[in-house]
Structures are given as C-alpha cells and as structure tokens.
C-alpha cells in the first residue's frame, strides 16, 4: 500500500513540467525514505535524478519498496488537471497496475481522482560516483535560464569556464559569437539573488545548449541553481526543492577528438 499526500501539490506539477520533455518513460521508486526517480533522456546524453524526501509529505505511507513505471507525458496530462493550490495524493495498492492521483481543493469542496495505467519499463540504473568538483557556481535560476535562452539564439553549444574572474558562458554560431561573464556578487538584498563561485581549479567545459534549455524548465522549482563542474566529468545542474529534496540534471560534456 502506497499513500503520499503532498499539501503543496504544485511542486509535483512543476517537477513534471521540468522533466517531461527530457524523459518519456520512467520508473518512480518509492521507499520508506522518499519518492525518487532516475532516468536518462532517449539519446543517453543526460540523466535526471529526482528526490522528494518522506518528511516533505504531510502523510507518507510506503509499506514496501515499489517501482512504478509511468509515461511522463500522460502523468503530466493528469497533473495538469490539478489546481495550483490543490493537495495531491498518490495512491497505489500492492500489485496494482494503476496509480491514482487524488486532487483536493484547499477548502475541500472539490475532490477528484484520476487513475493512470502503469507500464513496465526496462530502465538502467546508473551509479553516480561522489566527485570532488573543481568549481561550484550558485546563481539565480532565472538568470541561468535567461543566459541559456539568449545563447541558444546564437549557437548550439555553450562553453562554461570558471576562473578567478568569474563564470563565463560563451557560444559561437554562423552569425557571430557571444560571451556572458557573471562575477561573484554577494552584496544583494536577498540571498537567492547572489552569485557565489567556489573554485578549486579553473575549469572549462563544452555542452549542448539544447539540454541546458531543457534543464532550465525546472526554474519554477527554485530561486537558485547550482552548477558543479569538473574537467572531463558530466556537469550537475541542481535545483533544490525546498524542505523536500532536489532535481539534478547530469549532462555529458562534449569532448574534442
């Protein structure tokens, strides 16, 4: 028996909006500690890892570990029927081939349940090793989204370089080149507006902008984004979900032959 009641149902709606274009089908894994997902995009270049910890739910019951295969497009269709202020409850019986999403309006005057068919998904789970990152950049998520969108109108790839001067996002295309440098800036009114750069070593990596723009769909989940870089390792683009967990995107760098 599985029953997860999320008072801030809009969080789940935002999570689906963030990942549905990157991943078609995925297994949601539910255990006593939380609700999680790990999935690769169809071309196996990027990986998304989601964690929603049990303590973030108002009610969390998961009698035994269960993996539920869902088509994220279909799941998104169902979650779009929930209001932004609705409480969302996920329910599944042991051995059932369906999951039920229950939506309750804040004043309990409307209760809806949507039952969705589960699917068998043969997915590979990857082991993500602990890594020491050469540079970690924390910046406003909206700023990062803006940079990726702007650069993708010029080129297809972004070079992200961290030096003691700051973090530089560069691209080039047929019409010309673009460079955007963000310096560390902690003298801001609110902590979420800060740009903080922790650098152990300078690092410079090249990534496909198409994926970065896809990751930026998680912007509504968090005011800040954390970008962790090490040479010859996938970048980690992390959006923390307040009091609950995170959505992390991993993207393999492009490598010179």
């Amino acid at each position: 028996m599985l029953e997860l009641r999320l008072v801030q149902g809009s969080l789940l709606k935002k999570v689906l909006e963030a990942i549905k274009d990157l991943v078609n089908d995925a297994n949601f894994d539910c255990s006593a500690t939380g609700f999680s997902l790990q999935a690769m995009d169809s071309s196996h270049v990027a990986l998304v890892a989601l964690l929603l910890r049990n303590e973030g739910f108002e009610h969390y019951r998961c009698d035994r570990n269960i993996s539920m295969g869902m088509n994220l497009g279909n799941m998104n269709k169902m979650l779009k029927c929930a209001g932004n202020d609705d409480i969302i409850t996920l329910k599944a019986d042991d051995g059932s081939d369906t999951v039920t999403f229950m939506f309750e309006s804040p004043n309990q005057d409307k209760i809806a349940d949507f039952e969705m068919k589960l699917m068998d998904i043969d997915s590979e789970h990857l082991g993500i090793p602990e890594a020491e990152y050469h540079a970690i950049v924390r910046m406003p998520s909206a700023e990062f989204a803006r940079i990726c969108k702007d650069l993708s109108s010029i080129g297809d790839t972004v070079v992200i370089s961290v030096t003691k001067e700051g973090v530089k996002f560069s691209t080039k295309g047929d019409i010309g080149t673009a460079n955007i440098v963000c310096r560390q800036n902690t003298t801001v009114d609110k902590p979420e507006e800060a740009t903080v750069i922790e650098m152990k070593e300078p690092v410079s990596l090249t990534f496909a902008l198409r994926y970065m723009n896809s990751f930026a769909k998680a912007t509504p989940l968090s005011h800040t984004v954390t970008i962790s870089l090490s040479s010859e390792l996938p970048v980690v683009v992390e959006y923390k979900i307040e009091d609950m967990g995170y959505v992390r995107f991993y993207l393999a760098p492009k490598i010179e032959e």
Binding site: M40, L47, E124, H125, L126, G127, P234
Partner: peptide, 14 residues
C-alpha cells in the same frame, strides 16, 4: 568539432 559522448561513458550501470 567536439563529439558528444553518452552519459554512460562516465557513470557505470548498477
């Protein structure tokens, strides 16, 4: 230009 490797080149299957 640079080549795009798969993420599985960096992370091993469990």
């Amino acid at each position: 230009g640079p080549k795009q490797p798969a993420i599985t080149k960096f992370f091993s299957k469990l």
